[in-house]
């Protein structure tokens, strides 16, 4: 690897592992795809393996699985009501995928799938797509009442509707950018401080002494990044639930 070891951007580099080209499109199996596959495989294997005993009294692993399951179920039920439970597999998939992808990214030398805007944007568009399609299927044109809040003076109505539409359109953007930016910024910060440690460490005895401070910083930031990884997955899932609520109950 002939790259500057302190380059904080290098970790986001995508490499082709198995080049695949169909027509003009490059569908290569990359390190990003590899970590998507790993995310799915690890999560599914964990969930499947821990529930193998189907214990009445859960084992430790089964407890983790059950807690995550019920946590997500409660989150969805609180946000979207009992009618929202039809989206439970969808929300649970999104939550687990984002959570495990974020946490996998915390391993050194691992690729963070969610640090690429296109991935988070695709997930956000999937959520908004489900909201729009289900909303129109369930409520037909009445669903557009979502943009017309009740009890608004007729004079203000065009303005309010415009604001509502803009806010709806900005949802996938904010949803995807929030996750992407958090993961990206966190990983860059970690790498920058780790780069300080490396650079100072190569400067001799005094440098090693000076490297202690950024090293402590890296340790603290690592803990923070674990928090951010879990928190952003939670935020993504909660917002998904709230947007799905709009599809089910378009009235404000």
């Amino acid at each position: 690897m002939e790259h500057d070891p302190t380059d904080p951007i290098h970790q986001f580099q995508i490499n082709r592992i198995v080049p695949i080209r169909i027509g003009d499109w490059d569908f290569s199996f990359t390190n990003s795809a590899l970590f998507m596959v790993l995310t799915v495989a690890i999560t599914a294997a964990f969930l499947y393996y821990t529930t193998r005993g189907r214990g009445l009294v859960p084992s430790r692993g089964q407890s983790v699985t059950e807690l995550t399951y019920e946590f997500t179920a409660n989150m969805l039920r609180d946000a979207a009501g009992p009618a929202g439970m039809r989206f439970f597999p969808f929300v649970f998939s999104i939550f687990m995928f984002v959570l495990v992808a974020n946490l996998l990214g915390m391993f050194p030398y691992f690729f963070t799938v969610t640090s690429h805007l296109i991935v988070t944007f695709a997930l956000a568009m999937l959520v908004i797509g489900v909201v729009i399609v289900y909303g129109l299927m369930k409520h037909g044109l009445h669903w557009f009442k979502l943009f017309v809040p009740p009890d608004v003076p007729a004079m203000l109505l065009p303005l309010v509707v415009l604001i509502e539409i803009v806010s709806f359109i900005s949802r996938p953007v904010s949803l995807s950018v929030r996750l992407f930016a958090n993961m990206l910024a966190g990983h860059i910060t970690l790498k920058v401080f780790a780069g300080f440690v490396f650079s100072l460490g190569t400067l001799g005895a005094l440098g090693i002494l000076g490297a202690i401070l950024p090293l402590l910083m890296v340790v603290a930031l690592t803990a923070l990044e674990f928090l951010v990884a879990a928190l952003q997955a939670y935020v993504f899932a909660v917002l998904t639930c709230m947007y799905l609520n709009d599809a089910i109950h378009p009235g404000h």
């Binding site: 995508i14 695949i20 490059d26 569908f27 290569s28 199996f29 990359t30 990003s32 795809a33 998507m36 596959v37 995310t39 799915v40 998939s93 995928f97 799938v113 690429h116 296109i118 991935v119 695709a122 997930l123 999937l126």
Partner: peptide, 10 residues
């Protein structure tokens, strides 16, 4: 590539 593999894996 990312979109395709995300669609497949997800």
């Amino acid at each position: 590539s990312q979109l395709l593999w995300l669609a497949i894996t997800f």
